[in-house]
Computed example of a mutant assay.
Amino acid sequence: MTATLDTDTAVSSVPVRADEVRRRRGFSLFGLAIGLAVPLALALLWEAAVRLGLAPGRLMPPPSRIALTLYDLAVGGSLLMHVTATTARVAAGFALGVVAGTLFGALAGYSGTMRQLLDPTLQGLRAVPSIAWVPLFILWLGIFEESKIALIAVGVFFPVYLGVLGAILSVDRKIVEVGRVYRLSGPAMVRRILLPAILPEFIIAVRSGLGLGWMFVVAAEFMGASEGLGFLLVDGQQLGKPDQIIASILIFAVLGKLSDAILVAASAPLLRWQDGFAARR
């Protein structure tokens, strides 16, 4: 058995060859092309339908008009301003929500007393619609950045809290018992046992929180914002510009996907030890 373990260790420690790196890069580029196939095909079909007169392009403009709108916004400088404002709000609210959700989730998961004390209230607040927080935050914090960031943080908080709580509660008891056998202290137990065990679920929870952060920023920017992609949506609706509305939605989609990809890439080294199904494909 010792020889088998030594062999496995030796095999796992062999560095990745250059051809293997190239293969993975090729698979990544192929996956990117596959992911773009559906939206590009739909865009081309709709463009053709409008140009051939098979569909009206007034309320659902073709991709060429949307691209022209994006170009005009970019040349005028307003696109960068709106994207920067929205991204900064999401980043600030995301950071606050992740920190608070991780803290409360860890407290409720590690301590049964804290779970009985906190979880019923937080589960009740989780059911409150996002738009219901808007008047309260405006009353408390005004219509400036603080209220917008607070609303985004609320949206991020709950999936992170639930993810951390559920991950801690699902940790295998035998692993915890091993830590107790070795007389690990509370901080050592958290650092050496609980954190590695919950890390995959924690990353998924953070990704869910990031997605909700991008959704909540729209409601946040409805609160008297003069810049941001939410403002572009409202402006396009009030002025009857469907091309501007769809362009804003597409920018939201691109920013959300890009931020999620950055988060996945940043967390990949932390999950390299996993030997799951996806790692073998």
Rank of each mutant, 00 (worst) to 15 (best):
V75Y: 04
V75S: 07
T86L: 03
A150S: 13
E146K: 11
L139G: 06
W133Q: 08
G163Y: 00
A91Y: 03
F137V: 07
L52R: 10
L80W: 09
F157P: 00
L122C: 10
L59R: 02
V98W: 00
L107Y: 02
V98G: 03
S64T: 15
E47K: 08
R173D: 13
E47W: 12
P159C: 05
A132N: 09
D119F: 04
L141V: 10
V171P: 06
V134K: 13
A127E: 12
L45V: 14
V83W: 00
I168G: 03
E145L: 03
G166W: 01
V83I: 15
R65E: 15
G112K: 09
L45I: 12
L165V: 10
T121R: 01
A91P: 01
S130F: 02
T69F: 07
L122Y: 03
G112T: 12
L79H: 02
D172L: 04
L117D: 07
L96M: 13
P63M: 13
G163A: 03
L103V: 15
Q116I: 05
V83H: 01
W46N: 07
G57I: 11
E145M: 03
L122G: 09
V99E: 02
M60W: 11
L45N: 05
R126E: 08
V171G: 07
F104H: 04
A74N: 06
I131Q: 12
R65Q: 15
P159E: 05
G105H: 04
G166H: 04
